[in-house]
Design a protein around this nucleic acid. Structure first.
Lengths: 199, 199
DNA sequence: TGCAAACTTGCAGCGCCTGCAACATCGTCA
DNA sequence: TGACGATGTTGCAGGCGCTGCAAGTTTGCA
C-alpha cells in the first residue's frame, strides 16, 4: 500500500516542498502576488507537475493532508464512549488549534491567514474537506450518517471558523483555541442569547 | 438615490437579463459548459460589460441581490421583541426557503443546485454575503457585534446549508424548508445527540 | 445646444488549469 | 544485469476567467 520506497518518498518530498514554498512565498508577497510558475521554479519542477499534485493553487496553499483528516477521525472515535459526539469533536478540534505551533506547515498556514485577510474566502474548499471528515467522525459515534451528523459537524466547524476569523481581527487578543472555546460554548447552549444582554 | 430614471432602469434590466440567462443556460447545459461570452451573446452585450455587473461568473449564477439581503435584515429586526435572536433568524430564513417558488430567479437557482451537484462548493461566496447580513441582523437585536453574533449567524446558516444539501440528495423527500426545521432544531438543542440513539 | 458624468466596448494580456503525447525514471522479474 | 511495464514528469497548445486601459457612446442637466 505505502509502497515502493524511493518512489513514494520522492513524491512525498516533492509534495511537501511545493506546499511549503507556496505557503512561504505567499506569506511573504501575498497569495495573489505569487504565481504557480514561481513556486515551481523555486522547487525545481515543471508547472505542469504542480497540478499533478494539487488540484489548484489554493489547494496547495490551504489544503489539509489526507493524513491529518484521518487522524482527526481516529481521534474523535478514540474519545471516551461516554462523551457525546459534539463534545468529542470539539475537544479534538480544539486540540488541533492549540497544537498549531507543533506542525510547521500548519503554523505557517495560520500565519498566512493572519497576515492576509483576503484569503479567508478561499479556505472554503479546505473547510469542506474538514467537514466531510468531521461528519464521518460524528457518524461513527452515533451510528448514523444522517442529517444530524451533518448538522453537528457543520455547526461545530462554523464555530471554529468564526473563532479563527475573530482571532484574525485581533491577533494580539486571545488565541484561536480560546475563542473557539467561547463560540463552541454558545453553540452547545443552543445559541441561547438574550435579546439585550447589558443595555 | 435611486436616481435618474432611464439609466437606472436599463442597468437593472441588463443585470437581471444577464443573471437570468446565465442561470437558465447553466441549468440546461451545466454550469461549466457555458461561457461568459455565450451568456453575453444571448443578452446582446459585451463580455467586458458582464464584469461591470458581476464580480465573477459564479456571482452571476449564485449571487444574492443586495435588496434581498437588506430585506432579510429588515425582516429579522421586525420580528417580535420577545423572540430571541436565533429564533428570529431561523424564522426568517425558513420563510425564505419556503417562498422559493415566489421569486422566479431564486427558484431557478434552487433548480440549478438540485440538478448540478458540483455547484455546491461554489455557493460559498453567496453564503458568505448571506452570513454578513445575518450577522448584522443578529447584532441589531443583541445590541452587540461580537463573537456571539458571528457564531449565531454562522451556526444557523450551517444548518440551512446542510438542509439544502440534504434536500439535493433526495429531491423527492421533504423540502429544504422542512429539513431546515429539523437541522435548526438540533442546533437549538445545543447539538444534543445521544451516542447511540437506537442500536 | 453643449457639457459632464456614467456606461459600454474592444483590445491586449496575465494567470489558472487541462488534455495529450513524448520522455525519463523506477521497480521487478527473469 | 538487462529488458519490460508501471509510474511520474515535461512541454506544448489552448481555453477560459478576469483585469486595466483608453476610446467611443449614451444619458442627465443646465
Amino acid at each position: 500500500m505505502t509502497g515502493t520506497g524511493l518512489r513514494e518518498r520522492k513524491k512525498a518530498e516533492t509534495r511537501s516542498a511545493l506546499r511549503e514554498t507556496a505557503v512561504s512565498l505567499a506569506h511573504r508577497d501575498g497569495p495573489d502576488a505569487i504565481t504557480v510558475e514561481q513556486v515551481c521554479a523555486a522547487v525545481g519542477v515543471s508547472a505542469r507537475t504542480f497540478f499533478n499534485y494539487f488540484a489548484s493553487k489554493d489547494d496547495a496553499l490551504f489544503g489539509v493532508d489526507a493524513g491529518v483528516l484521518s487522524a482527526i477521525v481516529a481521534d474523535v472515535v478514540a474519545r471516551p464512549a461516554a462523551e457525546d459526539p459534539a463534545t468529542a469533536l470539539i475537544t479534538v478540534l480544539h486540540d488541533l488549534l492549540s497544537d498549531a505551533a507543533g506542525s510547521s506547515v500548519w503554523h505557517d498556514q495560520l500565519a498566512l491567514i493572519r497576515d492576509h485577510p483576503e484569503v479567508l474566502p478561499r479556505l472554503d474548499d479546505a473547510q469542506r474537506a474538514l467537514e466531510r471528515a468531521c461528519t464521518e467522525a460524528v457518524s461513527l459515534r452515533t451510528g448514523r450518517l444522517d442529517l444530524d451528523a451533518h448538522t453537528t459537524a457543520a455547526a461545530v466547524l462554523a464555530a471554529q471558523r468564526v473563532a479563527v476569523a475573530a482571532w484574525r481581527e485581533q491577533p494580539d487578543g486571545p488565541g484561536p483555541d480560546v475563542l473557539f472555546e467561547r463560540s463552541a460554548a454558545l453553540v452547545r447552549s443552543g445559541l441561547d442569547l438574550p435579546t439585550h444582554p447589558s443595555s
